[in-house]
C-alpha cells in the first residue's frame, strides 16, 4: 500500500516520496553481472570492507618491530583494544587467545561496513541488507554452540544453557523452555536484527531528512525555513550515526564474546 501510492504519486510529479524499504533494494540496479549473477552495491562494499580491513592490518604488521612505527602503533592499538577489552576481559585470560582473530576480524569488518554509511560516495551501510547480517549471526551461533558442545558435550551443553542454577526444580517446566528459547534461538536472531535494524533505521532517517529537506526547499513557502532546518538535523544525525556505527560493531563483537564465554563457563 505504502509504496504503491508513493510510486504513483512520484510518477505524477507531485508530493513527496518518503524513503522506505525500496531505498535498500538494489536488485533492480546491479552494478555489473558476474557469471550470470547480478552484483549489487552492497556486495561490492562487503568485499571492499574485508579488503580494507586486511590491508590495514597487513600493512601495520608487515614489518612488525619491537619499537612500532606510526602505522604499526595504530594497528596495535586497534588490535589490542579488541584483544584486551573484549577478548581478555570477557572470555577470561585462560582461553581467549584462540578467539582473538575471530573477534578482531568480526569487529573491524563490521566497523568498516557500518562506516560505509557515512563515507561520501558510498553512503550505504552494508548490513542494512539483512541477509548479510544473518550470515554473521549464523556464524556466531555455530561458533558459540560449537565451542560449548566441544567443551561440555551435547547434553552437558544443553543443560548448561537451559537449566538455570539457583532455582528450585519446581520452576523448571516454566524456565527451561524459556532459557532454551532465549539462549539458543533468540540470540542469533537478535544479534542479526539488532545490527540490521540500527543500520537500516539510521540510514532511513538520513535519507528522510536529506531528501525531505530538498523537497521542502523546492516546495517553497515555509519550506525555505523548514528545509535547511532538516538539513541541519541531517548533519546532527550523521554524527549520531557515527556513534551508532561504532557502538553496533562493538556490541555485536562484545555479545559474541559473551556468548562464547557463557558457553565455556563451567557452571553459571
Amino acid at each position: 500500500m505504502t509504496m504503491k501510492t508513493g510510486i504513483t504519486m512520484a510518477a505524477e510529479g507531485e508530493g513527496y516520496v518518503a524513503p522506505g524499504p525500496a531505498s535498500f533494494d538494489f536488485s533492480e540496479v546491479p552494478l555489473f553481472e558476474l557469471g550470470g549473477l547480478a552484483v549489487t552495491k552492497p556486495m561490492v562494499q562487503l568485499v571492499l570492507g574485508a579488503v580494507i580491513v586486511f590491508a590495514f592490518f597487513y600493512a601495520a604488521f608487515r614489518r612488525a618491530s619491537i619499537v612500532p612505527g606510526r602505522l604499526q602503533f595504530a594497528g596495535e592499538a586497534a588490535y589490542g583494544m579488541v584483544r584486551n577489552s573484549i577478548g581478555r576481559d570477557i572470555i577470561g585470560s585462560k582461553d581467549f587467545a584462540k578467539f582473538v582473530p575471530y573477534l578482531v576480524a568480526l569487529f573491524f569488518f563490521l566497523l568498516i561496513n557500518n562506516a560505509f554509511a557515512s563515507i561520501p560516495a558510498i553512503q550505504f551501510p552494508t548490513f542494512s541488507r539483512a541477509s548479510m547480517a544473518y550470515a554473521l549471526a549464523g556464524l556466531s551461533w555455530v561458533i558459540y554452540n560449537g565451542v560449548g558442545i566441544h567443551k561440555h558435550g551435547l547434553i552437558g551443553y544443553l543443560k548448561l544453557q537451559s537449566v538455570p542454577s539457583g532455582v528450585s526444580p519446581v520452576m523448571y517446566p516454566l524456565l527451561v523452555p524459556l532459557e532454551f528459547f532465549s539462549n539458543i534461538l533468540v540470540r542469533p536472531a537478535t544479534l542479526a536484527l539488532r545490527l540490521f535494524a540500527n543500520m537500516f533505521a539510521g540510514h532511513l532517517l538520513l535519507i528522510l531528512f536529506s531528501t525531505g529537506g530538498l523537497f521542502l526547499i523546492e516546495y517553497g513557502g515555509i519550506g525555505y525555513v523548514a528545509g535547511p532546518l532538516a538539513w541541519v538535523l541531517a548533519i546532527a544525525i550523521s554524527f549520531l550515526e557515527l556513534l551508532v556505527q561504532f557502538l553496533q560493531a562493538y556490541v555485536f563483537t562484545l555479545l559474541n564474546a559473551m556468548y562464547i564465554s557463557g558457553a565455556l563457563a563451567d557452571e553459571h
Binding site: P21, D25, S27, R129, A130, M132, A133, A135
Partner: peptide
C-alpha cells in the same frame, strides 16, 4: 518491493565467504 527482512541467498553466502 522486497521485504527488508527477506532472505537473499546470494548475499548470505557472499557475506559468509567474505568474512
Amino acid at each position: 518491493v522486497e521485504n527488508p527482512l527477506g532472505f537473499v541467498p546470494v548475499e548470505f553466502a557472499l557475506s559468509l565467504v567474505t568474512f
